[in-house]
Design a binder for these strands. Structure first.
Lengths: 65, 65
DNA sequence: CCCCTATGTAAAGTCTGCTTTACTTATTCT
DNA sequence: AGAATAAGTAAAGCAGACTTTACATAGGGG
């Protein structure tokens, strides 16, 4: 699963730590998501999409197969 | 998180077991998702939405806080 | 250079998502 | 009614999502 979290965060000039705060997760979690170490839970994916005013499909793209 | 999985499955006249097969998960997982015992992973949420030709937002609705 | 704050990253622990096995309760067919 | 198949559910176990603690690296301002 690819995501545009880092790109969207940088567009807003937000630090990893402040994004973590807005999402109510640890900054380690933001780092892991941006690096693609794991996928967010579905509720966290919703929080992320809504924070950036996008749909989940606009933020996350499943791997091709 | 609420979801419309059972409704969408019944509209297609699919059994829980055959939905499980299409999604490549166990029928226990389908049962648990329909009963709201837990949320699917993000990749599984994508599989479900695409199977029904809907967006994730059309299938899953986060709880109102 | 030293200090401070931001950032990356790792390890251990907890909780959730999902599987396998297995038992129970329908439902359907003869 | 009895047999066969479908469906609900529970327990144990593994993997993944996330936290806390902690340490290392990097940059900027005095």
């Amino acid at each position: 699963m690819n995501n545009r979290i880092q790109e969207l965060r940088k567009n807003r000039n937000w630090s990893p730590a402040s994004l973590a705060e807005k999402l109510d997760v640890s900054r380690q979690t933001v780092n892991a998501l941006e690096r693609g170490r794991y996928d967010p839970s579905l509720p966290l994916a919703f929080s992320i999409a809504r924070l950036f005013d996008l749909t989940i499909e606009e933020v996350f793209q499943p791997d091709q197969d």
